[in-house]
Design a protein around this nucleic acid. Structure first.
Lengths: 184, 184
DNA sequence: CCAAATAGTTAGATTATCTAACTATGACTA
DNA sequence: TAGTCATAGTTAGATAATCTAACTATTTGG
């Protein structure tokens, strides 16, 4: 969408981005431990997939004028409707980002009328953040695309593969969760 | 590494970032087509994994003072040693970014002495880019970590699972390649 | 009542991108 | 050969998503 204006991208490229073949080549040159090669190879593919899956989602969300980070924020707020009121600090914790980043994100969303801030009466240091009806409308408009992009990632797997993959995914999830969670 | 200074991250969070549970909850509320739910669910996990896999790599590369984008560039240059000389335009095509972005990246790497630029004698519009011995040394220092991080992504899968996963990965690779490649 | 903690914001920086406009330089054509 | 067009690279300026550090209210707990 953005990456193809007139005079760019001229070469004989079949792979998007670096692709993994060059890496494989380099690996063959530099790694000694033969046993690991297959794992490394697969890890490389996972890394490449990660980059490109996020790209695909970016591209699919772009027409709605929203990004994943911002959608995340709105979804979180939507989930909180009718529950305890949520504050920027709590949002920061839930999204795993700093309070200052939440401020920036909220400023942006508020400017468009998709969220509202209100100072708490009880503790006037605190701000209650809510998604607005317009914000909710936007989310509802985006969600079908979001879900279908998610689902489309598995388009080419058959029933059998999906079944196995499900198990694998849950292992990977736990495994990465462990890695990322270390040191919190 | 960066995300845990003194007074931040105070809440009762077990999942890094938003996690997927909230998404699942929202999905159950909003999606009608029951058939797709499992796919969406798995797609969500893939999306979450993508984010976090890249994070893990970021964190592991950080101590070397380099990022994935920059390492990509150096690896590409390293692969080109002893072949035809490579130009910024060609690099842009290979990395899937704009020429202007390549300029910025090269400026940064050149400032640290890891790459060098030289005007072509034949066609004085062109620049030949090379990795320097220092750059090569850096890459060689980083690579063991890079490979081991790649391999570690599969740590928790057993032999059987790896075997199946290998096939699945190659399907996913092709599938996403197709999606990303559309419109080039 | 005052010191310490907490909540949110501001200021300023970084990384990785992008587009658009510009500067050389080379190539083709009338 | 002059004139136009294309190509290579850079510059300028923007955006998104972060970060840290410092600041301002406000509350809480002696």
């Amino acid at each position: 969408m953005e990456r193809k204006t007139a005079n760019e991208c001229t070469a004989d490229q079949q792979l998007p981005a670096l692709g993994i073949d060059p890496y494989l080549e380099l690996m063959d040159k530099t790694t000694a431990q033969d046993a690991d090669r297959k794992s490394i190879r697969m890890g490389l593919v996972m890394l490449w997939l990660s980059d490109n899956i996020l790209d695909v989602m970016d591209v699919d969300l772009a027409p709605f004028g929203i990004t994943e980070s911002k959608l995340d924020m709105l979804l979180l707020l939507m989930l909180h409707e009718g529950r305890e009121l949520i504050t920027p600090s709590a949002i920061a914790d839930r999204l795993g980002i700093r309070r200052a980043s939440v401020t920036a994100l909220l400023d942006w969303l508020e400017k468009r009328g998709w969220v509202s801030r209100e100072q708490s009466a009880k503790d006037r240091r605190m701000i209650h953040v809510r998604i607005t009806p317009e914000g909710r409308a936007l989310v509802n408009q985006v969600l079908p695309t979001f879900w279908s992009t998610c689902a489309s990632l598995l388009d080419d797997l058959d029933a059998e593969e999906r079944k196995v993959f499900e198990k694998i995914l849950s292992k990977l999830y736990q495994s990465i969760e462990k890695k990322v969670g270390v040191g919190r």
